[in-house]
Write a protein that binds this DNA or RNA. Sequence first.
RNA 1: GCGAGAGUGGCGGAACUGGCAUACGCGCUGGACUUAGGAUCCAGUGAGGAAACUCGUGGGGGUUCAAAUCCCCCCUCUCGCACCA
Length: 835
Amino acid sequence: MADVFPFQEIETKWQARWDELFRCDTSRTADKYYCLMMFPYPSGDLHVGHGRNYIIGDALARFKMMDGANVLAPMGWDSFGLPAENAAIKNEIHPREWTERNIAAMKRQFYRWGVIYDWSREVTSCFPEYYRWTQWIFVRLFKAGLAYREEASVNWCPSCKTVLANEQVAGGVCERCGSTVYLKKLAQWFFRIRKYADRLLDDLDKLPNWPERVRVMQRNWIGRSEGVEVSFLLEGMDERLECFTTRVDTIYGATFIAIAADHPLSAELLERGGRAAEGKEFLQMVRELQVQEREKAEFTKEGFFTGCYAANPANGRRVPVYLASYVLMEYGTGVVMGVPAHDQRDFEFVRRSPIDIDVVQVISPDGAQSPGLSEAYTGDGRLINSEAFDGLDNRIGMAHITARLAEKGLARPVVHFRLKDWLISRQRYWGAPIPMVHCRKCGVVPVKEEDLPVILPENVDFHPRGDGKSPLATVAGFVETACPVCGGPAERDTDTMDTFVDSSWYFLRYLSPRDSSRPFDSSLVNAWLPVDQYVGGIEHAILHLMYSRFIVKFLHDEGLVSFDEPFRNLFTQGMIHRNGAKMSKSKGNVVNPVPLIDKYGADTVRIYTLFIGPPEKDAEWSDRAMEGAYRFVNRVWRLYANHREILQGAFGEESIDPEILDEDRLKLYRAVQVTIERVTGDIFARGFQFNTAISALMELTNEMYLFIEQNEAFKRRDPGATSLFRDAMKNLLLLLAPIAPHLCEEIWERMGSGTTIFSRKLPKANSRYLKSGTYTLVVQVNGKIRSRIEAEKDTPREKLSELALADDKIRKFIGEGKIIKVIVIPESLVNIVVK
RNA sequence: GCGAGAGUGGCGGAACUGGCAUACGCGCUGGACUUAGGAUCCAGUGAGGAAACUCGUGGGGGUUCAAAUCCCCCCUCUCGCACCA
């Protein structure tokens, strides 16, 4: 009967003891390592996909501890938000209670994985002692002119009955519930993130250790675009139409103007052009198209002639002004100069136009005008049909044309961004109240900092009202207040904040989580941030990371923190898939880790999860492959269990002189050195490659079994051999401990150690023994392997060449051929080139 | 369409600087022990071939003594963005 690792008996014991281990003394900063996991939304059901995130973080924290770092690994809860409210409405339970229950369940879950944090620093964003400071940040932003209220067309989800940020609308539908979103005009709060657009873009270069794809996504999201604003004078009106273009070099090809249907001038233009009646229909149609159709790939370019004309400022050409569905009011100026010859969209529009619009080619790829275009030519070339600029390279012409128009006051260089200001107000209950007061006399004024927090009332009918107002509007005791400025009767703002505001600064709070006098301790935060390693999912590549960067830059500008980027290193782990889809409750393909931990133990689940593939890549879950990890755990356990006597005290130093070991023992000694090198390299140098580190540890284990079974000296219990085995076991446990902590702690203790294995340092390899004394030299003839020869390390090149040429098999292959060249790669191969 | 990543045995994957392709694990085949095996251990396991050998990292070309790795062209998949003027 084989001995089995009794994980059920020992797991909880260690999980309780490790609390102490993870408690961080933040006054020690010299060797600090801030290891941060993205704090979760407490949805209550963690599956193995979430597990991967936390297991990676936990293993990393433990490796860093054993690397000698003072590790800060805190955890908290991003606990405001819609799901709590929805669940509460459905189950008739208060969102706070629902949230707290889930937090308790998830905390238990973390422990069961052996995933430990410094819980003395736990933060919960829905508690007043936390959101007080979220409100404080809001007030600071307001005072700095970076929070403002504006009537805006906002995305309205009819099912969630709330406003959504642009980021929460995907393909015209609500990201959360899938309902079709439409536009609604409401007064909303915004943060002026656009003011930071340039810095958010430029400083991406300060983050070389972020995944390239995250930086690209942020860059695209900010969408900086340099161009020129050109004025087209409207015929018979004292008005100009400002067009934003990045291709002013094509202006001589501009043969129409297209403006957005919701442009403020559109109605007036239709009136002037005498087409108001039919135009109205068109406007209505575009409005209906807007949110839904616009998102679809097959969006057609509908247009309507206003009856008005404008003058092309370059050549005075009279061009018709169209309303066009493909022009977006939100980008640029909402007016586009139509250059069908050199813009594919304009080209397609002209094809559909009921009246003729000229297609004038002004750039020629080869310097000669080509006869007719089947699609727009968007490349570079020489300018033609461009009067004084003919013959110029178009890129050079661009500067000249801009200068000429600018002289006449008809153009100016501008920069546009796709990034929009951050809409942060929500008409929902479960969020941090916006700390503003509406006073008839004083206007909209912030609550005094000393009066924060504005407490979210408990007894509220939090069912959404659907009238564009938050449920808080029904709570008289909440709404009615005194104006902080004049003291007169006033009303509180009843909106709550987007939860991304809560999560944009939580990593600062962990350093002083119970401080009731300020949001964070500047000196501690300056010592501990930027975060050394941030670990989380790719789904937060844009929003959370962008908002956190913005808030930190703001706090930096306020002189409250000394750094201006929050996260120095970012690691985004891959998602776990099952049956070809990413694991999610809605897909019904989630795997509950609890039964697996019950059956195989936490360490097996950890090993399998880390062994499944490179942590940054998506992986397919398979219960069956769990067996391999389970076998490995038990193989390590039996290594101890079958040699208890030999391994007593094996946590200490063994006196091994590798110089006097025979070849058999040297082989094991070398295997240990190689494993140390590989595991530490895989984790630290190569970026958390737990999968290959585990392979290396499996190989060492296999090597140890070979030694036990085959080494005669070991079978005799010869002290020279057992000492070597003890040393191998010690190193195996030290390297495996961060990955399979329960197993290694338990064996460590049973071997007689009174202190935790995590107080020990990771071993260092004896670099002189990473390679063996002899190696197999591969001999090729014309690049094909023809023989293998055992060779001594450090054999000179000439000698290797001689050895290879003297080999019988090789001589046979060379035969009558003429040797042209012999390539010798020492320690590896010889290639003989024969003709 | 643009951007990023990927394509290697039956499967997950390894191969770090161009130098032994398929480490490690799963699965499978055979064997040992056994009343039994969903335990454990041993052996085997890219394809073809009796063998010598030949072929083999999505496809095609190239560079090189040598290519999974570098270059060019193409195909497929995943993710992100998508009328951004």
